[in-house]
Amino acid sequence: MIETTVKCVIREPLTSRYVLLLETLCGHYLIPVNVGDLEAESIYCVLNRINTPRPMTYEFIARIIDSIDDANLDRVVVDRYEQGNYKASIYVICNKSEKKIDCRPSDGIALAMRMGIPVYVEDNILCPSCCVDRTNINEKDNKVLANLIDDQDGPLWHI
């Protein structure tokens, strides 16, 4: 497994859908994950330290988990890629036993960001059909990619 960080959330210009970019800590790989509008907004709020007037869904879930004795979220793992979609699991330690729970990557990542737990990708995700290997693209394309990511108004880009 490789640890990642949330690089940004981008609004894709052709379809107006949101894409979350995970970046491996070494910076060589970008993993584009499609996310819904609400998940994009939730992740944007965490990235930009925006407080909401009342707890939203992921804050509510995080508070529930925090209130349960002997229950801790350990990690989120983007562990497979099937038919153009990423799949993920969240790992919960409860009473010294580890539980694996399937989840959408966007839900797991939004919760992980609120609870300060790491997000990993399995090694098999780091292939040309699943991610962008920045070490294998030409300099011009790497500059375009860097401009796309860096040319945002904060970590969320609006068209």
Rank of each mutant, 00 (worst) to 15 (best):
L25A: 09
Y120N: 00
I159S: 06
R49Y: 04
D66V: 01
D107L: 10
S16Y: 13
K99G: 04
R63N: 14
I65N: 03
L20Q: 10
D102N: 14
I93M: 12
Y120E: 00
V78F: 02
Y86P: 04
V92E: 08
P13W: 11
L156R: 03
K99S: 08
Y86Q: 08
P118A: 14
N136V: 10
E98N: 04
P105Q: 01
E3L: 06
C45Y: 10
C26L: 07
K96P: 01
C26N: 15
N147A: 02
V77W: 00
R80T: 13
I10T: 06
Y18K: 10
S67Q: 08
I61H: 07
D74K: 15
V33R: 00
L47Y: 04
C127K: 09
S16D: 13
Y120K: 00
E98V: 08
R104D: 03
D107N: 08
K99T: 11
C127V: 14
D74N: 13
A110P: 01
F60V: 07
S97V: 15
I117N: 02
V92I: 15
K87Y: 11
I31L: 11
C45P: 02
V19P: 04
I43P: 07
P13R: 15
L22I: 13
S89L: 05
V144C: 07
R54E: 01
W157I: 05
S106D: 08
H28D: 13
V92T: 07
P105N: 04
L73S: 01
I10M: 11
I101A: 05
S16K: 12
D102K: 11
T135N: 05
I109D: 08
N147R: 02
I2A: 06
N95Q: 12
S89Y: 00
S97M: 14
V132L: 15
P32D: 11
L126H: 11
K100F: 01
M1N: 03
Q152L: 14
A71M: 15
R17M: 13
P155D: 05
W157T: 11
M113I: 05
K96Q: 12
T5S: 15
C131G: 13
L38T: 05
D69F: 04
D150K: 12
D153N: 05
D133S: 12
I117V: 15
